[in-house]
Measured scan of single mutants.
Amino acid sequence: SEEEEEEWRRAKERGEEIIILGILWKPNDEEAERRIKEALRRV
């Protein structure tokens, strides 16, 4: 969703871990980033 995407962007800017759509994303975690982008597209 729009607000999840916004939340994720803010976490990326701050360089902090975030759990979004049930996926743990850490800074520079390209695999998780790809999965999150896929999940955001499906929503």
Rank of each mutant, 00 (worst) to 15 (best):
L40T: 01
I36V: 09
E2M: 14
I19R: 08
R10G: 07
E16N: 07
E13Y: 06
V43S: 11
R10S: 06
R41T: 09
I20V: 10
R14K: 14
A32I: 03
R35T: 06
A39K: 06
L40G: 00
R9F: 09
K12Q: 12
W25V: 01
G15L: 06
E31Y: 05
S1W: 15
I19N: 05
N28Y: 12
L24N: 04
R35G: 05
A11F: 06
D29R: 01
E13V: 08
D29M: 02
N28F: 13
A39L: 09
E6F: 09
K37A: 11
R14H: 08
A32M: 04
K12A: 08
R10C: 12
A39Q: 06
L40Y: 02
R42N: 12
E31W: 06
S1C: 11
I18D: 01
L21D: 01
E5K: 04
P27T: 01
E6A: 10
E7W: 15
E17C: 10
K12S: 05
I19F: 10
R34Y: 10
E6T: 08
E33T: 10
V43H: 15
A39G: 04
E7L: 15
G22E: 04
E6S: 08
K37T: 12
I19L: 12
E33M: 05
R9Y: 11
E16L: 11
S1P: 12
P27S: 02
W25R: 00
E4M: 15
R41H: 13
E31H: 05
D29H: 05
E38S: 04
N28L: 09
A11L: 09
W8R: 02
G22A: 04
L21E: 02
K37R: 13
R34W: 12
E5F: 13
I36S: 00
L24M: 07
E6R: 07
K26I: 12
E7T: 10
E3M: 13
I36M: 03
P27H: 03
G22S: 05
R41L: 13
E3A: 14
E6L: 11
R10L: 10
A39C: 12
L40R: 01
R10Y: 08
R35P: 00
R9E: 13
R9S: 08
I19M: 10
I18F: 12
P27K: 03
G22I: 11
E2N: 14
R9V: 10
A39S: 02
E31N: 06
E33S: 07
A39E: 08
E6C: 02
A32R: 02
R41W: 09
W25L: 00
E16G: 05
V43E: 13
I36N: 00
I18R: 04
W25N: 00
I36L: 06
A39R: 05
R41K: 14
E16S: 09
I20T: 01
E38F: 02
I19W: 15
E4V: 15
R41I: 09
G22Q: 03
R10N: 10
R34V: 09
R9L: 14
